[in-house]
């Protein structure tokens, strides 16, 4: 038999970017512990709609932890209390009966609130665009082993590429810095021979773009790696630092 719990939710409600927001309290009754966190909000939204009220706006898409669309700060923790889990994959069995849950959007100057829990994260896309391109030869496909890549580099690049761009690192960082995100994006290319020709240009323009977008500066608090749903390591930040110094001090790139 499915277990059900009752909860008190305090949800951030904000009508629009320029509007003032505040926490509103809702009762969530008979919530199945098999539900995901987003399904729980769906239930509340159905209830709100029936009452003729505005449902809670939140971002989501795949609901299987791979797209990076979902996310909210639950009781002070981005994507909730479970390690290595996105909000859509967080199940209500991790909460107890009569819990109070505070739900807030990602907070960062670079992520303005669109509505309620939905925030504008195109700043992340803008950093990727600033990274430009990599040189890949066109024409007939070359032999798969023509460019040797070590197993270790491939694994590290894959770990970095696991980033789904959800923005939890920014939300978790006490300085609202996007260094973990940027370091993952720089690392996944810097580790491969294919990423080398533009490495210097990429490191410089991406860091410059990040600084312009109004993110904070990294002070190695390491909250980001503890909250990242894909458990991306801060060793990537050290790699980004190295890439940036190489580019800044030793390349001709300005």
């Amino acid at each position: 038999m499915t277990k059900t719990i009752n909860l008190t939710l305090k949800v951030w409600r904000q009508k629009g970017q320029k509007k003032k927001g505040r926490l509103e309290t809702y009762k969530a009754v008979d919530i199945s512990t098999d539900m995901s966190f987003l399904e729980m909000i769906d239930v509340i939204n159905e209830q709100l709609t029936l009452e003729g009220k505005e449902p809670i706006a939140f971002d989501h898409d795949c609901r299987e932890g791979i797209c990076g669309m979902c996310g909210a700060v639950v009781n002070g923790r981005p994507h909730g209390p479970e390690k290595g889990t996105t909000l859509c994959q967080l199940h209500m069995r991790h909460f107890s009966n009569n819990d109070t849950i505070v739900i807030e959007p990602w907070r960062s100057r670079a992520f303005p609130v669109i509505k309620d829990l939905a925030v504008e994260r195109s700043a992340l896309d803008r950093m990727i665009q600033a990274g430009g391109f990599i040189s890949v030869n066109t024409g007939g496909a070359q032999d798969a082993n023509a460019i040797p890549v070590s197993q270790e580099a491939a694994e590290l690049a894959m770990d970095a590429a696991a980033c789904i761009g959800c923005g939890a690192c920014v939300a978790a960082c006490p300085n609202a810095s996007a260094m973990l995100f940027l370091s993952a994006k720089v690392s996944q290319l810097a580790l491969f021979p294919q990423g080398k020709p533009e490495a210097a240009k990429r490191a410089i323009s991406m860091v410059r773009e990040m600084d312009m977008l109004g993110f904070g500066n990294c002070t190695n608090e390491t909250e980001c790696e503890a909250e990242c749903p894909k458990e991306i390591s801060i060793t990537n930040i050290a790699r980004l630092n190295r890439e940036f110094y190489k580019a800044g001090f030793f390349s001709a790139e300005k």
Binding site: N75, R107, R109, N175, G214, T222, E223
Partner: peptide, 30 residues
């Protein structure tokens, strides 16, 4: 400069803050 910029990077604060275990007393109070 870092202190000032980092303070400005989050204009609206969280009403509930919780560490995931990354921060230390050292890093918190720098």
């Amino acid at each position: 400069t870092l202190f000032y910029q980092n303070f400005k990077a989050r204009p609206v604060r969280y009403s509930m803050n919780k560490s995931a275990g990354g921060r230390t007393i050292g890093s918190r109070t720098m």
